[in-house]
Design a protein around this nucleic acid. Structure first.
Length: 839
RNA sequence: GCGGGCGUGGCGGAAUGGUAGACGCCGGGGACUUAAAAUCCCCUGAGCUUUGCUCGUGCGGGUUCGAGUCCCGCCGCCCGUACCA
């Protein structure tokens, strides 16, 4: 037989067109098959697909294709998270329109994705910048407004005076705007908010039901929501005022020896007339901002002349302004209990304040001194009047009850979670559908006037919001009274766009955001795959939005993503040299470097470059490999196979040229094996039959557990076994099975092979059936141990009796030499596994 | 600081408490070839007195007939982070 090579440059396109023509991956919501919704986080159309995308979508693709073979009707859609800052930056830098720039990027990236052969339902594709999409989003926003979940409030924002825009906290670096470098100002602006805090408890509780989410993500969300329960109460102050504090440890109230307030607390601000106070407040605002630095930073305080009266003892507690108290949390003031709070302990030590013990391991140790740190643990209350002898929990309740009865405090739940500010002073986003009327106030745009579309004729040559300075756009009549009024010029945070796109994928009627019945057929998403960087914001917002829609009766499902998987990054070595002049490293791309097993040299001059750590691919380190170039060279299947091989999917995947070349070789190796398929071959090979069926079962369970690297290893093993086997009907069956196993991972190769040996598309074929009888071997290898150390192995029939196994073991010369005549005390037999002789 | 994760050959990594290193990459040797590529075969944790033995999963203990796996105490790396009262 003449040997041909598998040519991906021909085959890839052929099968991609065949799937497209047959509508193979078009999801039919009316199908009687069980439904499966596989979704990867949709991309921002930055211009090029990168390896991280390829890895992400390959994983989802294997699941989608596998589920289809298992008889599911699979929804596996793709679209574009198309609003956002980069388009406006491009507009400012290159003078292109954000819309045109975005559309061109989408076209380019879509073509790239299609070249990888993803099993996507492109009939459902949309971009969030489509007026149809954001018009429906505006409608949903109005629904939430009607439900009381949207409000406007004046709030302090980060204002960049050069770019004339609000910056997110993440965009403020060391107090300066990330783009302009200008000193950021705090400004008060009217902003739109979503009442995510209404759902704080719900969102927290819901985490418990998300068993197929990574523990890590659930913890991060739990911390972000940050629920704490305690007592809020007021101290009477010596100047006649009151000071509200919040504590989660009201049980330790008898241990309070001072009060501390934040630098921007109104009382502190009231004292700022004193230059000494003003100087201290200034000092508090400087200093490090990272969590680690804050934790180790020195506690600083300024003792005011004010004292606070303890509600039980009547003692006068000094009131400090302190750098470790935050205005944003609780009441911006705390009672200091040095014995049982580490920060308070450090502060009290520094300023010579009493450190009182009010919790002890047992009542007899009520006066034990502290060992250089606070004791925050559990115990029995001591030195605390009516609380003495109570547990911490009981004492908390007792103090709260007293405070509530006495009218000087009450139990309160405090959340770290804040309402979601969604106003952006940006052009390239969803216009917020409201009109400001001098007579009627803030008026929603009537739904029949949606979408409120963005004007096309905008300029980006000067900073600020183009919508704000557009000559006509913002002038609109009031929907209520018809008088001239102003259109809202803020646009929505792009996280709103990504908070419901999965619903629009499931159902996209023209006249509504979605059809609840259609949505119910697909939701929740069965597998949601994306990066860990979305652990909090996107995933929390999407959960909130889904709950809000459920709350308003629009959908039945509360949690959008049944299972979440966060995949690792694609990494690569870096190549660099220290620039002699400036002393900083200069990086080189992999395409400019000749990498050998000894080291690396620069192609340009043949001199050595330093091979650096394997880190996330990034433009600044130039360690980026372009998927297009790799696909052009090795074909889509080799790249897909690489993405699935070796590294577990949740860990980082180090890209290497040797690795992709090995994958390309394996594609050819399988192709040769597929070509050796002989439908007429006769004869049985029982051992190979077993191997085949065991592999089918193992690959299936590996894919279902997203253990793609293990599935890959099993396919290698079966390939090796088939190659070694003599021709037989069993071998031919094994080759057919291999085509099926390869189909989700290397679909083009599988189709090409299947065209010669089967009917129709392998993408439509069923996953091979497993014969349970063939899953168990009839012979097993038994380990023979002496004192747990391996001495020999023997082959025994499966299910041999303990007695037989023991006899077999004792017959081993190696074992007898090891025993050296010692008396046997015990024999441990694990059936089908091992015999261990204890002497 | 706190929370989470990880630590196994030259590298990526396998291993329901039961034969550590599956599978892949790299490397070495050989076959085929005029030659190269491609392909195929063999070797590849360390050491030793090599029918086999000893050591070996970050370090130190422990539980067990048996520990990479379970427990206790350390060390290192990575990620996240909120001085949250």
């Amino acid at each position: 037989m003449s040997e041909t090579r598998f040519d991906p440059s021909v085959a890839d396109g052929r099968w991609q067109r065949a799937w497209e023509a047959a509508g193979t991956f078009t999801a039919d919501s009316d199908s009687p098959r069980p439904k499966s919704y596989i979704l990867e986080m949709f991309p921002y159309p930055s211009g090029r697909i990168h390896m991280g995308h390829v890895r992400n979508y390959t994983m989802g693709d294997v699941l989608a294709r596998y589920q289809k073979m298992r008889g599911f009707e699979v929804l596996h859609p793709m679209g574009w998270d198309a609003f956002g800052m980069p388009a406006e930056n491009a507009a400012m830098e290159k003078g292109v329109h954000p819309g045109g720039w975005t559309r061109a990027n989408i076209a380019q990236m879509k073509a790239q994705l299609q070249r990888i052969g993803f099993a996507l339902d492109w009939t459902r594709e949309f971009a969030t910048c489509d007026p149809e999409y954001y018009g429906h989003e505006q409608a949903l926003f109005l629904d939430l407004y009607a439900a009381g979940l949207v409000y406007r409030k004046e709030s302090r924002v980060n204002w960049d005076p050069v770019d004339m825009t609000v910056l997110a906290n993440e965009q403020v670096i060391d107090g300066k705007g990330w783009r302009s470098g200008a000193e950021v100002e705090k400004r008060k602006l009217n902003q739109w908010f979503l009442k995510i805090t209404d759902f704080a408890d719900d969102l927290l509780e819901g985490l418990g039901s998300l068993e197929d989410w990574p523990e890590k993500v659930r913890l991060m969300q739990e911390n972000w929501i940050g629920k704490s329960q305690g007592l809020e109460f007021a101290f009477d102050l010596s100047d006649g005022g009151k000071l509200a504090v919040y504590s989660t440890r009201p049980d330790t109230i008898f241990g309070a020896s001072f009060c501390a307030i934040a630098a921007d607390h109104p009382i502190a601000q009231g004292l700022a007339g004193d230059p000494e106070v003003a100087a201290f407040i200034d000092q508090c605002k400087k200093g490090a901002t990272t969590a680690a630095a804050l934790e180790t930073a020195e506690k600083l305080g300024y003792r005011t002349a004010i004292t606070a009266k303890h509600p039980f003892t009547g003692a006068d507690l000094p009131v400090f302004i302190a750098n470790f108290v935050l205005m944003e949390y609780g009441t911006g003031a705390v009672m200091g209990v040095p014995g049982h709070d580490q920060r308070d302990f450090e502060f009290a030590t520094k300023y010579g304040l009493p450190i009182l013990r009010v919790v002890a391991s047992d009542p007899a140790r009520a006066d034990e001194p502290f060992q250089g740190e606070a004791e925050a643990g559990d115990g029995v209350i001591v030195n605390s009047d009516f609380l003495n002898g109570m547990s911490v929990e009981d004492a908390k309740e007792a103090v709260i009850t007293r405070a509530e009865q006495g009218g000087w405090g009450e139990g309160r739940t405090v959340w770290r979670l804040r309402d979601w500010g969604v106003s952006r002073q940006r052009y390239w986003g969803t216009p917020i559908p409201f009109i400001h009327c001098d007579t009627c106030g803030v008026v929603p745009v009537p739904k029949d006037q949606l979408p409120v579309t963005l004007p096309e004729d905008v300029t980006f040559d000067i900073p600020g919001n183009p919508l704000e300075r557009h000559p006509t756009w913002k002038h609109a009549p009031c929907p209520k009274c018809g008088k001239p009024a102003r259109r809202e010029t803020d646009t929505l945070d792009t996280f709103v766009d990504s908070s419901w796109y999965f619903l629009r994928f499931a159902s996209q009627p023209a006249d509504r955001p979605f059809d609840p019945e259609e949505v119910a057929k697909w939701m929740p998403v069965q597998h949601y795959i994306g990066g860990i960087e979305h652990a909090i914001l996107h995933l929390l917002y999407a959960r909130f939005w889904t709950r809000a829609l459920a709350h308003t009766g629009k959908i039945a499902v509360k949690e959008p993503f049944a299972a979440l998987f966060t995949q690792g990054m694609v990494t690569h070595e870096t190549y660099s040299r220290i620039d002699a002049g400036r002393g900083v490293p200069v990086f080189f791309g992999p395409e400019d470097v000749n990498r050998t097993s000894e080291g690396a040299t620069l192609l340009a001059d043949g001199e050595a470059v330093e091979v650096g750590r394997v880190i996330k691919m990034s433009k600044s380190k130039k360690n980026v490999v372009d998927p297009d170039a790799i696909i052009a060279r090795h074909g889509a299947d080799a790249v897909r196979w690489f993405m699935l091989s070796d590294s577990p999917p949740e860990r980082d995947l180090p890209w290497s040229d040797a690795g992709i070349e090995g994958c390309a070789r394996f594609v050819q190796r399988l192709w040769r094996l597929f070509q050796a398929y002989d439908a007429q071959a006769q004869g049985e090979d029982k051992a190979l039959d077993r191997k085949t069926h065991q592999t089918i079962a193992a690959v299936a369970s590996d894919i279902e557990a997203l253990g793609f690297n293990k599935a890959v290893a099993r396919i290698y093993e079966l390939t090796g076994a088939v190659e070694k086997a003599a021709p037989s009907a069993s071998r031919s069956a094994a080759i057919r099975a291999l085509v099926h196993l390869a189909a989700p991972m290397m679909p083009h190769l599988a189709e090409e092979a299947w065209a010669a040996m089967g009917e129709g598309l392998i993408a439509d074929a069923a996953w091979p059936e497993v014969d349970p009888a063939l899953l168990v071997d009839d012979e097993v290898t038994i380990a023979i141990q002496h004192m747990g150390k391996l001495r020999d192995t023997v082959t025994a029939p499966k299910g041999a009796s303990k007695e037989d196994l023991e006899a077999l073991a004792l017959a081993s010369a190696n074992l007898q030499r090891s025993l050296d005549g010692a008396a046997i005390r015990k024999v441990i037999v694990v059936p089908d596994r091992l015999v261990n002789i204890v002497t």
